[in-house]
């Protein structure tokens, strides 16, 4: 099948998409956007989090066909050219990035949180990020990063 989708503001098209393919596979393998990650491909880790029509979703749980005519924004679409989004900047500065495999998903989830709640409390941050696994950091510096980004926005 053919899928037409807007990704990071650009109209994109993919042909020969299989029925069973996920939005994650479409982004990563057909549209050259591997920023969204594939840590579990079953909705458990949040590493594939992208915005679809401004709502964060696990791209691995969305069928590629469901993205038809939708507006998708991935981690690759957050920075403004060379200028990082404040959330991205805070992740680097706070040391919230080790292997970084969780980072794209966490950055999108934190970006969404701060859009909704500009000054979240710690329990609010924890709740918002509870669906994003990180195996390296123990989360402390991820919390630091979100607090830092909130203080700058």
């Amino acid at each position: 099948m053919r899928v037409n989708v807007t990704v990071n503001g650009e109209q994109r098209q993919a042909d020969d998409v299989w029925e069973g393919e996920s939005l994650l596979f479409l982004l990563r393998e057909r549209l050259g956007l591997p920023g969204s990650k594939n840590a579990c491909e079953q909705g458990e880790c949040g590493s594939c989090t992208v915005y679809m029509d401004n709502v964060p979703v696990c791209a691995c749980l969305v069928a590629a066909g469901q993205a038809q005519d939708r507006d998708v924004r991935t981690v690759e679409g957050l920075a403004d050219g060379d200028a990082l989004d404040p959330v991205q900047e805070a992740f680097v500065e706070a040391g919230a990035v080790q292997c970084g495999f969780c980072t794209p998903g966490l950055v999108v989830a934190a970006h969404d949180l701060l859009d909704r709640v500009p000054s979240p409390s710690d329990p609010e941050i924890r709740e918002a990020l509870a669906g994003n696994l990180c195996r390296c950091t123990g989360y402390e510096k991820i919390l630091d990063a979100v607090r830092l980004a909130a203080s700058r926005r």
Partner: peptide, 23 residues
Amino acid sequence: TSPQRPDGNLKVRGEFAYASDLW
């Protein structure tokens, strides 16, 4: 000191090439 890691920018932008991203 704690300078920023050299791969940090690429990682937060989603542009760091992990083994599963290779093409």
